[in-house]
């Protein structure tokens, strides 16, 4: 069932391509804005690269989160989904995983202009870097898709989600930025594995809470 639900999310996205186009162009616009707002000596950007990257990821993810519930409410498709014999927790997991796939895809596309325009060199050990990006994205989309589901039926939900989400995500933001920074400077994993543990525990805690509590927030 989970497979069907994820396929459904991605199919809707594939038909409209709304999130994909808006998220991808927004991330490129952000990169160019970074280049304008900070001095363009390449040394500076190397220092700030991890922070800039996650700032881009964070703001881009909000666009995707808004889309993923707005098509649920358009023809009240969400009610039809809730009334069908599907476990609510699985609906949450499908939202989370599909959002994660989409965000990761966008980030890897945006990585090209990111490295090119900001003249950033990535270290050779790029497997670790990919691991950090996957963990960070997963943590962000986990709480993100939960809270957007919660705010979906509120007024001003578009504004409400980032206001609540960003402070709650503070451990994820710090951990992602710190671990990416350490990795880019070529420090061994043992120096910054604390941050990996923070990310993993965040995913475990809020993944379980989201799975258990989603039922309560989806009921009208």
């Amino acid at each position: 069932m989970l497979g069907f639900l994820i396929k459904k999310e991605l199919l809707i996205e594939l038909r409209a391509k709304e999130s994909f186009i808006t998220m991808a162009s927004f991330s490129v616009v952000m990169i160019v804005t970074f280049a304008f707002t900070f001095t363009t000596t390449s040394g500076r950007f190397m220092e700030m690269a991890s922070g800039l990257f996650w700032m881009m990821a964070l703001f881009t993810s909000v666009l995707g989160l808004q889309r993923s519930y707005s098509y649920e409410s358009e023809f009240d498709a969400f009610s039809a989904l809730l009334s069908s014999p599907v476990d609510r927790g699985q609906i949450f997991l499908a939202k989370w995983f599909s959002g994660f796939i989409l965000l990761t895809l966008i980030e890897f596309i945006a990585l090209v202009p990111f490295l090119l325009f900001l003249r950033i060199q990535i270290p050779e050990n790029f497997i670790q870097g990919i691991g950090i990006i996957l963990l960070g994205n997963s943590a962000m989309m986990c709480l993100g898709s939960f809270l957007s589901g919660m705010a979906m039926r509120s007024r001003l939900s578009n504004v409400l989600v980032p206001i609540i989400l960003f402070p709650l995500l503070c451990p994820v933001i710090i951990a992602s930025v710190k671990s990416t920074g350490s990795w880019m400077r070529g420090f061994p994993l043992t120096d910054w594995d604390t941050w990996v543990y923070v990310l993993v525990s965040f995913i475990v805690i809020f993944g379980l809470l989201g799975y258990a509590l989603f039922e309560h927030i989806t009921e009208e």
Partner: peptide
């Protein structure tokens, strides 16, 4: 509905406290 979302948010917020503290500390 406000009551229900508030209850959930109260749980989420407090569950986040240890992680927030740990991450700002390091």
């Amino acid at each position: 509905r406000a009551a229900r979302t508030a209850a959930v948010l109260g749980i989420i917020a407090f569950a986040d406290v240890p992680l927030i503290f740990l991450s700002v500390k390091f």
